[in-house]
Design a protein around this nucleic acid. Sequence first.
DNA 1: GTCCTGATCCTCT
DNA 2: GAGGATCAGGACG
Length: 189
Amino acid sequence: MNQNASLDLTDSLIAAKGLLGWELVHETQDGKSSGIIVETEAYSQEDAASHSFRGITERNKIMFGAAGFAYIYFTYGMHYCFNIVTGPAGHGQAVLIRALEPIDGIAIMKKRRRTEEANNLTNGPAKLVQAMGITKLDYGANLLSGDKLRLEPGTTPNNVIQTTRIGIKNAVNKRWRFYIADNPFVSKK
DNA sequence: GTCCTGATCCTCT
DNA sequence: GAGGATCAGGACG
């Protein structure tokens, strides 16, 4: 376990791996909630599965901006997913956060998720958004500025698994998904 | 405009 | 393991 001095967001693949072990913190009226990032996926504009593949649009324009901002999108008519923008300005890429290990505010998460099961709070991209109280209002938030929604350094995990992504139809052969081995809060092995 | 699809989750069998 | 919920963005004309 090594202390992370800084986060490399110059490339989504590097960032997806580097984000594992970092803590995502959100302070709301209900209190503070946070969790360790245990599962991520990388997306880039050369990648047919990425929202940025077909170029810049009103929805995904934040992906083409500077790194370190929140890209939140709505899908399947009922779910939001949370991404961290990476790469240089002008290059559309981001890292999808797929799962967290709950740390602070677990009682708040249970209330938001309407469940008592601790291992069912944040083990999926739409679940963690709900558990953390993230909304579309957080679109474009600067995660590195120490604001209410932010990233905090954690510890680098020892065992990281690299594999294929989940829930996509294009570019399914790319092994752009990373998760911490043996972590019970990973959405799927 | 209209149509279709989706980086999902939950509730059933 | 399968299917439904439910709506915004994007493609097309």
